[in-house]
Simulated scan of single mutants.
Amino acid sequence: MSLTQALPKTARLRTLGMSAGIAASLRTMIQEGELPPGARIDEKAFCDAFDVSKTPLREALKVLVSEGLVLHRQYIGYRVAPLDLDELRETFETLHGLETHAGQLVANRLSDVALAKIERKHQAMIDAHAGGKRTDYFRINQEIHQMIVDSADNAVLSGIYATLMSKVHRARGAANADQLRWQESHEEHDAIMDALREPGRPRLATILRDHSENTAREVLRVVEQTLAEPSDRVVNARRGR
């Protein structure tokens, strides 16, 4: 029987509710790169940050273990799951082709309504960049990429792209923690928007692929560097809920 099961019913429901919220927060922190791959999770620090006991925190961590985002070893504790460099490289190679194909289709299929929506989302990303809101910026950045692919009006392409992007989401978050790449990515998105506005959009496919390759290069560099670092780093909670 787990600690949660041993609690009275009302307390168990309250604990499960708290653990769901904690799991959501930790999931976002992992996916956005705030909690780096391979680092050990300091349970006490996170209990203090979330102002909870170990029971809801561990219930949340068990959820993340089931999702493959966290690893648990008896007597060692919890770690953020490492990234697979070879899988990432192969995934990016496939994404480059999807970006190119999407760009070719979008050149002829992008509607004025879809472009207007992308324009508004791009402005929100600019605002997040200007405000130094890195997490918001990265989330909007991802949404823009999916919106562009969705504008190709090909459900199969959109589905495959979304699935593969979910595989590299966490790694991209880690790379976007780099200030230089953040600025470069911002400038590349400006170029993408310029290409979307051009009559006929002749440069769109090439610019989308170049952006994808630049992102992959930086992500793989950061992941390779992370894998080469000592594995006993401890994640300290830097924020609460």
Rank of each mutant, 00 (worst) to 15 (best):
Val235Trp: 12
His101Ile: 05
Arg209Pro: 03
Met193Asp: 00
Asp127Tyr: 07
Thr28Trp: 06
Ile207Ala: 04
Gly240Tyr: 04
Ile160Glu: 12
Arg197Gly: 00
His122Trp: 14
Ile148Pro: 09
Leu115Gly: 01
Leu98Phe: 09
Asp194Gln: 13
Val168Trp: 04
Ile207Arg: 14
Arg197Pro: 03
Arg238Gly: 11
Asn236Met: 15
Ile41Gln: 02
Met165Ile: 06
Gly77Asp: 08
Val65Phe: 03
Leu35Glu: 02
Arg120Asn: 13
Ala6Val: 03
Thr15Asn: 12
Glu188Asn: 07
Ile30Cys: 09
Glu224Met: 02
Ala174Glu: 10
Ala45Trp: 02
Leu98His: 01
Ser231Asn: 11
Arg134His: 12
Pro230Thr: 07
Thr28Ala: 12
Glu59Val: 07
Lys54Arg: 15
Ala152Met: 11
Gln179Asn: 06
Glu213Cys: 03
Val223Arg: 04
Met1His: 09
Arg120Ser: 15
Ser19His: 10
Asp194Met: 08
Gln225Arg: 15
Asp190Tyr: 05
Gly240Pro: 04
Arg89Glu: 14
Ala162Arg: 12
Arg217Met: 04
Ala130Asn: 13
Leu13Glu: 14
Pro37Met: 09
Asp51His: 12
Ile76Thr: 12
Asn154Phe: 05
Arg79Ile: 06
Glu188Pro: 02
Arg217Asn: 08
Asp112Ile: 02
Thr206Tyr: 10
Ser212His: 04
Arg238Ser: 08
Gln179Gly: 00
Tyr78Lys: 06
Met147Asp: 12
Asn176Phe: 15
Lys117Cys: 02
Val168Lys: 01
Leu110His: 05
Ala116Val: 00
Val65Trp: 00
Glu67Gly: 01
Val52Arg: 09
Gly17Lys: 10
His186Glu: 02
Ser111Arg: 05
His101Val: 10
Ala191Val: 07
Glu187Trp: 01
Glu90Gln: 14
Ala216Gly: 05
Thr94Trp: 03
Val235Pro: 01
Ala155Phe: 07
Val80Phe: 05
Leu57Val: 06
Glu143Asn: 04
Thr55Gly: 02
Asp153Arg: 14
Leu16Gln: 15
Glu90Val: 02
His145Gln: 13
Asp232Ile: 04
Ile144Ala: 05
Ile76Glu: 15
Gly103Arg: 11
Ala124Asn: 11
Leu208Thr: 02
Lys133Ala: 15
Ile30Trp: 06
Thr91Phe: 01
Tyr161Ala: 00
Ser2Asp: 15
Asp210Asn: 14
